[in-house]
Computed example of a mutant assay.
Amino acid sequence: MSQLEKILALVRSINEDEFQEQLTYGDSLDDVYQELLFLAEKIESKKRRTAIIVEHISNCFAGDFFNYLPISEAHDELDVFCMGFNTYIEELKSAMVSRGLLETINKKLVKEKERSEQLALSRNQFLSNMNHEIRTPLNAILGFTNLLLNSSPISPDQKTQLQYLKMSGDILLVIIDDILDLAKMESRQVEFSNKPFNLSQLTRLVHETFLTKVQQKRIDFKISIDKEVPAVLTGDSIRVTQILFNLISNSIKSTPEKGKVRLKIKFQVEEKDFYFVKFSVIDSGIGIFGAKLDSALNPLIQVNDTVDSGVGLAIVQKTVSVMGGTFQIKNKAGVETKYIVTLPFLKGY
């Protein structure tokens, strides 16, 4: 092989490896010239494009981020680099837009937070004033009730009625405290008592309390307790009664005349230190419709004219949660609403 042929083979191999092209197929001096000319033009083109890329990246360091690199028709490694760089620029633009959007949202959230804090302050001030206005006559009622229980000769029936009156007053005081301390309940700072109480006596109080209301609406109101449920439970009877009062009151209000309300108490499960008891309040009222079911536990929202929800159900949810239980609402709109509370009670206290 002559020197000319060797040069031509070398140049062709460079062109083929670098540019995947072969221009000539002879072995003349003219072929060598065409191959070298093609190689020189390609190298010069790469130099110009590399200079543009270097200048562009330098501008990026100076703060000009959003100019794209040019893509040639060569489809070589420089174009691959340029396409990758341009993709990065697109992502950077999106990130900058998202950042601006987030900053706008954050500003709105700060304003909403300040507004919510102001509303909470106003609400707390209002509730504090209401607390004083309600507590004063209620304490007087409870005081006179205690005097009658402790100092007057009364019949067994009168004593039972006075005990119901006292328990109802105690429950009302707890409700007032809970309305004032919803935030406190959320932080789980509420204290609960653990004392033995008679479940049948508690349900009799519940039945007697709502008897007049259900008679006025001719509602069929019944309470059933399974035999497996212990007659004496250890826990916070005031809170249990408060939970049942809220749920039954809500059911009676949402149930039309001649409807049904049931309180069913069943033994759920026994664990090492606890009995778990399920309380189900079932009514034949209109129920809570669709998307409004989530709103039912918002203390600031009344779902509709016949369902109280709001504070009542919010207190139930938070109280049950802090007591270590569960609360569910199962709803068939227009047919039935079922409130299910499961609570733990200490064994052998």
Rank of each mutant, 00 (worst) to 15 (best):
A40D: 12
Q216S: 13
M130R: 10
E91H: 13
I134C: 03
K111M: 05
K347G: 03
V174I: 08
N129I: 15
S280I: 08
L202Q: 02
F267H: 06
G26S: 10
I141M: 08
K47I: 14
D294A: 14
I340A: 03
A314E: 04
S224H: 11
F279M: 00
I238A: 00
Q22K: 12
P344D: 05
E55T: 11
Y349A: 13
V214S: 03
Y68T: 12
S168A: 12
Y349M: 11
V277I: 15
L109P: 04
A120L: 13
F345C: 05
E18L: 07
M83V: 13
N146P: 02
L127R: 01
N298D: 00
T209Y: 03
Q201S: 13
S13H: 14
N59V: 07
G290Y: 09
I175W: 10
L293N: 06
R115E: 07
K166Y: 07
S309C: 08
G26I: 09
P256H: 04
Q201M: 12
S321D: 15
I225S: 04
K227D: 13
K213N: 03
Q268H: 15
T24V: 10
K227S: 13
C82M: 07
A183H: 07
Y88R: 07
F61P: 00
T160V: 08
R218L: 13
A296S: 07
S151H: 03
F38A: 07
H56I: 10
H56G: 11
S2E: 11
M167V: 09
S98N: 11
G84F: 10
R239T: 14
H75Y: 02
D181Y: 05
V261H: 03
V320N: 01
D308M: 05
L10D: 10
I53S: 02
F279C: 01
E208S: 09
L147T: 14
A51W: 07
G26E: 11
V303R: 04
E41L: 13
P256F: 03
I329M: 04
S152F: 14
I71R: 01
R239K: 14
T136P: 03
L205G: 09
I134F: 06
V322M: 09
L244M: 01
G325W: 02
S152R: 11
V206T: 02
V240H: 02
V311R: 03
V311F: 04
L101T: 14
I141K: 02
V281L: 01
